[in-house]
Nucleic acid binder design. Structure first.
Length: 464
DNA sequence: GGAACTCGCCAC
DNA sequence: AAACGTGGCGAGTTCC
């Protein structure tokens, strides 16, 4: 493949070996947990949950549920809820789970428009915070410190995973959940929490594999924005701006661009984009006043204003966007997808630039995704190893304390901050490219830092 | 009474 | 022909 050298298998082994040692040192350091806050919040959450449950028990909705299941009634049982909604009340399922049971997840419940179900969703959310996150901290802490494990041997793509507790799925998007959970987490005493995130690394690494000229142009020009461009097409926005149309942009990014790169197609993408709209049903005619409020009206109204009458009508529109994506702008990318899969069928494996081989029965989607997902994470792992090495060679007090796929989480000694932060940037954006010449795209990072002895909710952007 | 499963939900 | 990927974990359910 051109003149770019892949890493050898022994280099891949070395990455695993050095990575395991560096991550073990991060595990040993761990993160401080404010146990008093944690216990206090647990009590407050329990009170709120009890209050909401009592309110729910008063509703006719619950009384009928109770009547059906008698002494076995359990508001936490989705099996009961599904039976009650779709068999007893005979409501229409908007979609089903893998095993054919009527879905009872947040989206499915919202589409039913039953106010009592909002109580149930609120209860679910608070229980998740309490029972998964706070209880996890309490169970796993040793003298007020948690030591999340980071595994390099469990994930099919040679990414990492984390457990006991999982440090890689702490709430971030939901403000209430984020505040409660991340308020528990502190760096070492007298230190500052720091996160160094690769910006759009998966798309950039995808560019290294796809070698599509238009894709590379998008990556090289910081003013261009593929997700915004697709959003403006998918949602018919004339003068798109990142600030004004941020919601549409993330819908396009997560509902179209990435799925298409990993083998999805327009029908699923149309449904993904619709899914981002909340309560809008995915089938049949658009009705007024459904979905999140946007531009002063609801999403369904927005759609109708744009001239769409049915979901199927919108699907056809996304088909034209898909056509534009693969035939007009990323033609070379489509060729890459086809030739990679042919190569896999011929030799029985695919390889990452970082020297890993993926064997076994794989779908087209797997073949497209694994090398990119793996190599993108390996950029972070290589950086982590070398930041750790630098810290040890220079006897610094700062420590790596975790890692979330494309971001490095550290406890920084404030006296070392001005010296260390530029070095972290250099390692992650320059040194790595001297070692791995297959990275033909620029890399960039974003850093966030919290004040001394402040918790993980106080992160603010910092330029170094 | 525990293993293995499903479902829902958190992250990238 | 088929239709975005990778995890962990809690609670309920099913199977032995």
């Amino acid at each position: 493949m051109n003149n770019i050298l892949k890493a050898t298998t022994s280099e891949a082994y070395n990455l695993m070996h050095q990575g395991t040692l560096a991550l073990a040192r991060a595990e040993r350091t761990g993160l401080r947990v404010d146990m008093k806050y944690c216990e206090k919040k647990k009590i407050i959450l329990t009170k709120k949950i009890n209050h909401l449950e009592n309110e729910f028990f008063e509703t006719n909705f619950y009384k009928r549920w109770n009547h059906v299941f008698k002494e076995k009634v359990d508001i936490q049982s989705n099996t009961q809820l599904s039976t009650y909604l779709y068999k007893v009340m005979k409501l229409t399922t908007s979609y089903e789970t893998k095993s054919g049971q009527g879905a009872t997840d947040e989206n499915a419940l919202q589409q039913l428009n039953i106010p009592e179900l909002n109580l149930l969703l609120q209860i679910r959310k608070l229980k998740k915070i309490r029972d998964t996150y706070l209880e996890g901290f309490i169970r796993e802490q040793v003298d007020g410190v948690i030591h999340p494990s980071f595994n390099l041997h469990l994930v099919k793509t040679f990414r990492s995973s984390s457990d006991r507790p999982n440090f890689q799925n702490m709430p971030k998007r939901d403000k209430e959940a984020m505040d409660i959970v991340r308020s528990c987490i502190y760096p070492l005493k007298g230190h500052q929490m720091l996160e160094a995130d690769f910006s759009g690394v998966e798309f950039r690494i995808a560019g290294c594999y796809y070698k599509d000229p238009t894709m590379l142009k998008y990556i090289n020009d910081p003013k261009s924005d593929i997700h915004g461009d697709i959003a403006s097409k998918a949602f018919m926005i004339k003068n798109f701006s990142k600030e004004e149309h941020g919601y549409f942009r993330s819908a396009a990014k997560n509902g179209f661009v990435f799925p298409e790169l990993y083998g999805s197609w327009y029908k699923s993408c149309a449904s993904n984009l619709m899914f981002e709209w909340g309560k809008v049903p995915k089938t049949s005619k658009f009705k007024p006043d459904l979905g999140v409020e946007i531009e002063g009206s609801c999403m369904s109204d927005y759609m109708m204003k744009k001239g769409f009458t049915h979901f199927e009508h919108y699907e056809e529109h996304i088909k034209t966007v898909e056509n534009y994506f693969w035939n007009d702008i990323f033609k070379t990318g489509k060729d890459y997808q086809n030739s990679l899969y042919k190569e896999y069928q011929k030799v029985g494996y695919v390889e990452s630039y970082t020297g890993f081989r993926f064997y076994g029965p794989m779908s087209l989607n797997n073949v497209l995704n694994y090398p990119i997902q793996g190599a993108a994470f390996h950029c972070l792992l290589w950086s982590l190893i070398n930041v750790d090495k630098f810290i040890r060679e220079n006897n610094l007090n700062s420590r790596i304390i975790g890692q979330i796929h494309d971001s490095l989480v550290m406890s920084i000694d404030p006296n070392e901050r001005d010296y260390l932060l530029p070095i972290i940037r250099r390692i992650m954006t320059q040194d790595i490219r001297k070692v791995w010449d297959w990275i033909i795209t620029p890399l960039d990072i974003e850093m966030e830092i919290a004040p001394v002895d402040h918790n993980w909710t106080f992160m603010k952007k910092i330029n170094f």
